[in-house]
Every structure is written in C-alpha cells, then in structure tokens.
Design a protein around this nucleic acid. Structure first.
Lengths: 127, 127
DNA sequence: AATATTAATAGTAATCATTATTGTTATTGT
DNA sequence: ACAATAACAATAATGATTACTATTAATATT
C-alpha cells in the first residue's frame, strides 16, 4: 500500500472523532482540506484501512460506520438519538459458555446493545 | 391489517423453512403458487409481518433475512457455507452483567455468533 | 536527477437491495 | 349491492456502495 495524502487525512479524521462516522460524514470532513476528493476515493480507502486493520467497520442498519478504536470492544446504539457508543465488556465473563454452542465451532462473538444512552436518560428526567 | 392470500402465502413459506430466507428467496418461492405476484408486494408484506411481530428480521451483510421463529434467540452464521442457524442461549447467564453498562440503559441485547458450522466441521474432518 | 512503472486518484457510470408511486383490484363494513 | 379503502402489480426512484476509465502521483531503477 503506497502513501497518499487522501488516505492519511481519512485515517486522521477517523482517529480524531468518536462519532463512528459513515463514509459520507468522512467525505464531508475531508473535503474541508482536500476539496476535490472523490467519494469513491473515500470508500476505497475506508475499505483498505479496514483490510489493513487500522480501523474497524460496524454495520448500523443500512449504513456502514467506521471506528478508529481497533481494540476488541462492543457497541451500544441509542434508540432515541441514534448515536453509537463504544462499550468495554469483560468478555471473559460470558465467552466461555458460548464457545460450545451445539456442534458449531464459534470463532467470533459480536454483542450488539441497544437502549437509551446516558444523555437521553438525563434529558428524559428533566421533563 | 386486512386479509390477503399473498400475505398468508408469504407467512406460510417463512414458517415452513429454516433457511432464514431473503426477500428474493421468498419471492421465488411464492411465485410457484402466485405466479404474477410483485416483488414490491413481498417486501411490503415482509415489513408488515415484522411490524406485527409475526416474523423477525435479521441483517446479514447487505441483505435482510427473515425468521419465522419469534421466540428470543440468537444467530450463528457459518463463515464457510454462509448458512444462518438459530441458537438458543440461556441469556440469564450473562445478561445481568450487561444491563449496567456505564450510565446507558440497555433494553436490547443481540449476540451475533460466527464460526464454522457442525456440517462444515464434519466435512473438514473427512479431508 | 531523469525516467519507467504502476498504485492511487477524480469523475462518473453501474449495481443491488429496498422503498415509493400510480393506477387497478379485492376485501370488508354498511 | 355498493362505497370506502387496504392491498395489489408494475415500474420508477432512491441511496449506499462498487466498478470503470483516463489521468496523476508515488516509488523503484537506471
């Protein structure tokens, strides 16, 4: 993978946010510094960065979101505001029980959490 | 929701399979008995059946799959053959620890499992 | 440093699952 | 039987993503 300023900028943007951006959001951001970048370039580079394991991709409904935090962790989606949060869960607590599901060999466990985030819970209390 | 033979047929098809079909698969099946049914009708009815909680929808990569089993359960996807299996997990074992993730209020926990299914493990041993 | 090689780019067209639209048909209440 | 309207078939539109093509730029080689 040879260097390009487009890819460097895209990686920097993803590492400097915690909003789990979509390709389109990244596109809007990177256009501020590289105005004539192509949306296709953003998609291609996001895929390359995922392949190189420099970022993670998470599927949210119909869109793909990206995450600069490559440490194993899970996600919590707020059903009210739509934000996606990183959550650390001590996987050891429940993974062992999961590895023997029937006769299937489990290699990958993803926990998807939904609910109301702390901010929205707070706002709810104010009403 | 008023009656239609199209919806009845779609529901029957989903209840009589365990392949977690896509909209397109359902469309091909239902065309055997209702040849001039429209793909749009299949999509609209699948959405209505999900809203009525008569079936479940599960997202698999870029497509949506449907499941006639509405009891709480999780899914295991085989990375070799692509099949999606229902798996029953005693949720009680790990859910309690999860409900207190930070200050977020968790209402929904989905566990997505991946690996090699029993059939593929078996085939692997034969080689 | 100049040149050759080819990955990466910008711009745009194509794809694919899904949803929306429109005119017609079928179900249900009166 | 008839009116009201949910559901239909057919098809157009949408939106996220990928593919294509000619051009540009990063790295290797002389």
């Amino acid at each position: 993978m040879r260097y390009s300023k487009q890819r460097e900028e895209i990686l920097k943007i993803i590492r400097n946010t915690n909003v789990h951006p979509t390709a389109d959001w990244v596109y809007e951001q990177v256009r501020k510094t590289i105005p004539n970048i192509s949306l296709g370039t953003v998609y291609r580079n996001l895929n390359q960065l995922v392949a190189a394991e420099l970022i993670l991709s998470i599927k949210d409904n119909t869109v793909v979101r990206y995450d600069g935090n490559v440490n194993p962790h899970n996600h919590f989606k707020c059903l009210r505001c739509g934000n996606v949060y990183d959550v650390e869960i001590p996987e050891n607590d429940f993974i062992p029980q999961i590895n023997r599901i029937g006769a299937h060999r489990v290699t990958n466990v993803r926990l998807e959490l939904e609910g109301i985030c702390a901010d929205c819970v707070q706002k709810e209390k104010l009403n």
